[in-house]
């Protein structure tokens, strides 16, 4: 396998990991953010958490694997991005930490104040993580200040530009909608009705923000800066998002969920094809951008990692898919059937 082929392959693999992560953790971030607003009684909140209880940790491993794969395949990308986005990533980590612990701890004490506190930690943690991820990806599309030595020269406030903030906010609302659609699939009775109402309102906000982000991207010229033209992919993403509303109105929750899932996947495909073969665009000087060619590991490492990935990725996909199948039933708020 040629070096260039391997570099492209690993770019695609990392893109797939991010796509998987956004699709999966997208709904569990959404569920987390909705938790204190949607669940009024304790059993309701427990039922909401249980829809993702058995899977959120596995979903998060997609992020860890994306991080690890970036480190192994494109060390310069990993080094520049992680050190450059230092404080943003620190806040993202805080979000993931408080959220993860809260899932496990919230039911371990019956005091309502304890439970409420941890429920809010889940919501705030999910919000922080979604917002910062969205802002980070928007900034990667926009370009960030990088010097000739591959060093990030901005700070936290460089990332808080209007485009970055719009990207963060859009991600939050899309994830909220995606989470609501997932809950529509997994809950029953009154909660299912309630979440449908939430989803319809979220859909309006999500559509407006998403279109605004698209227009901004196009108008500001962040469009197709690499060698691939995303073509009709982003247009399809808009169409499926609009279709979500149609299915929500007809209470076709399965289809609504598929639509937001497609929207998220297509958004990520757009992002990665917009930048390819760049991995981090330098806003200081385009010649200083990090690309799959100047940021990658040696051919030997990429070959070894390709073999490992080829063997294990299908196995992981198989057993993770199997757990979703195992836990496919709807969750009721009936106390007897709830797992705490």
């Amino acid at each position: 396998m040629s070096y260039e082929f391997l570099q492209t392959l690993w770019f695609i693999l990392i893109a797939v990991l991010w796509i998987g992560f956004h699709f999966l953790e997208g709904f569990d971030f959404g569920v987390g953010m909705l938790l204190p607003f949607l669940g009024k009684k304790d059993e309701e909140r427990r039922a909401i958490i249980n829809t993702i209880g058995s899977v959120w940790d596995g979903n998060e491993v997609w992020l860890l694997t994306a991080g690890g794969a970036t480190f192994a395949a494109f060390p310069h990308w990993y080094a520049t991005m992680f050190s450059g986005f230092y404080l943003a990533l620190f806040l993202l980590l805080v979000g993931l930490i408080i959220r993860g612990v809260a899932f496990e701890y919230r039911s371990k004490d019956a005091n309502p104040r304890w439970r409420n506190l941890f429920d809010w930690m889940i919501a705030v943690g999910s919000f922080l993580a979604a917002l910062l991820l969205g802002a980070a990806f928007a900034n990667l599309a926009r370009g960030v200040p990088i010097n000739a030595d591959m060093m990030y020269t901005g700070n936290l406030f460089t990332l808080l530009n209007p485009y970055g903030l719009l990207g963060g906010l859009t991600t939050v609302v899309i994830f909220l909608l995606h989470g609501a659609n997932f809950l529509g699939l997994k809950l029953e009775g009154e909660l299912r009705e309630r979440v449908n109402g939430f989803a319809k309102r979220l859909w309006i906000a999500a559509s407006l923000l998403y279109i605004a982000l698209g227009v901004f991207t196009y108008a500001a010229g962040f469009w197709a800066r690499g060698i691939v033209n995303p073509g009709i992919v982003p247009i399809t993403a808009v169409i499926v998002l609009l279709l979500t509303g149609f299915f929500l109105n007809r209470k076709m929750e399965g289809w609504a969920f598929i639509m937001t899932a497609l929207n998220i996947v297509l958004t990520q495909v757009t992002f990665f094809s917009m930048t390819f073969p760049n991995v981090m665009i330098s806003s200081t000087n385009p010649a200083w951008s990090l690309t799959i060619y100047n940021a990658s590991s040696s051919q030997y490492t990429l070959t070894v990692m390709s073999i490992v990935a080829l063997i294990f990725v299908p196995i992981v996909l198989a057993y993770q898919g199997w757990t979703y199948y195992m836990f496919r039933k709807r969750i009721s708020t009936d106390k007897k059937s709830l797992v705490y």
Binding site: S54, D57, G68, F71, A72, Y78, T323
Partner: peptide, 30 residues
């Protein structure tokens, strides 16, 4: 060291973390 050190880290996530978190989820809720 990314060329070397990154590999076991990526393998750790792919081989071990997925297995640990997925099956622990099955164990807790299953």
């Amino acid at each position: 060291v990314g060329d070397i050190f990154g590999a076991p880290l990526a393998v750790e996530a792919l081989l071990a973390f997925f297995m640990e978190s997925t099956f622990l989820g099955v164990w807790i809720f299953g």
